[in-house]
Simulated scan of single mutants.
Amino acid sequence: MRAQDNYFPELEQAARELLTAVGHAGGPISQRVASQIAEHLGYSLHYVGDLPQTTRSVIDQRHHRLYLPGGSRGGGFSRTAVLQALAAEVLGHTEPHDYAEFLRQRVESNYLSAAVLMPEDDAAALLGGQKSRREISIEDLRDAFAVSYEAAAHRFTNLATARLGLRVHFMKVHESGVIHKAYENDGVRFPADPLGAVEGQPVCRHWTARTIFDVEDRLSPFSQYTDTPAGTFWCATRTQRTADGEFSVSVGVPFAEVKWFLGRDTPTATSPGAPTRRAAAGPRV
């Protein structure tokens, strides 16, 4: 992912072809469009109440049926669940032979579904306009395509370098301080074990991904500057509650790139010492 700046043109093209096949004219996709994609691929959707608790969908390849949670678990139509389940069919995934292949397939399926939910041309146009106005905002990307903040943050990392020329990093951190997901191509140094694994490692308590849990108002956008041995980085963070606890989702850039983002004028800054507040942190122009 880092070697390709988290941008996969062949998956972008596959998403574009799917949307063209169902006549999608642009912008966010509706529930109806997701259903049309399933129908285009030859699958019917069925909502049942007896799927295992940890199962988001079951696909019957022989009878071309896709089963999704119904009843109290369903919570309405899930575009993401439909697209992630069908992505494996589009990409021709078979039973993985090892864990590396399993991870590659998971990355590709998640990427394709995100590229359908937030089409490249539309998302890049939105972000490009924001950059020209120096007001890039993950919240605005989220709202424009009716997705979660985490999905928007992931999608931003796909397009940030390839389409905007920005180096970025992404973190999802549990309230206990442990990293669940991470990506970077901007030089930030994530904590790692002796084998280089990042997931499962504790994050410095002064990083934005941790300090957000001490903020009283977590519904408003939160950002801060963090001084690290690799340089100063700026991050914007949101929290989200799940059955496994509360998580922070952060997107950040090196100090030199913060001029393109909303929230760059935050007075909050931390270092390995005690947190401080800056009267005018970061460039305003």
Rank of each mutant, 00 (worst) to 15 (best):
P194A: 09
Y111I: 07
T226C: 07
F77G: 12
S57G: 15
E199D: 07
P229D: 15
L51T: 10
A151M: 13
V107N: 12
Q31T: 02
T270N: 05
T211C: 07
G92I: 07
R133K: 14
S78A: 01
R104A: 15
D265P: 02
R284Y: 10
D98Q: 10
F247M: 09
L11R: 12
L86W: 13
A230Y: 05
R65G: 00
P96F: 09
S148Y: 04
E120V: 08
G231P: 09
T242H: 13
G23L: 04
E108A: 13
A197M: 09
R16Y: 11
R210P: 00
D60C: 01
V173W: 06
A274Y: 11
S113T: 07
V285C: 11
S137F: 01
L141A: 02
L127P: 13
L18W: 08
D214S: 15
G71F: 01
R277G: 02
D5H: 15
H169W: 11
P119F: 04
T270Y: 02
T80F: 14
H46W: 08
L11W: 07
V258F: 00
A209F: 07
A21D: 09
S220V: 07
T157K: 01
T55H: 03
P9F: 05
H24W: 11
A153K: 03
L41S: 00
H174I: 00
H97G: 15
R32K: 13
D193H: 14
F77Q: 14
G231E: 03
R277I: 05
E199H: 05
P267M: 11
F156Y: 06
K131S: 02
R278P: 01
R284Q: 15
Q240P: 02
V168R: 02
V90T: 06
L68Y: 04
G231D: 06
R65T: 04
R264D: 06
Q201V: 07
Y183M: 12
S220G: 09
L219R: 15
V116F: 02
R264W: 10
A87K: 10
D98M: 11
H180N: 11
A160C: 06
M1D: 13
D244E: 14
L141V: 03
T55G: 00
A280Q: 14
D244A: 09
P96T: 11
A123F: 08
Y67M: 05
V173S: 00
G71I: 01
E184M: 08
T208Y: 01
L86A: 07
V251P: 00
Y47C: 08
S220H: 11
M1I: 06
Y111K: 08
A182Y: 14
M1G: 14
V258P: 00
Y149P: 00
D214N: 13
G128V: 04
Q240L: 13
L91P: 13
Q105F: 09
E108M: 01
E95Q: 15
V173E: 01
P96N: 10
R62N: 12
T276P: 01
I59Y: 03
Q36T: 07
R104C: 06
A81K: 08
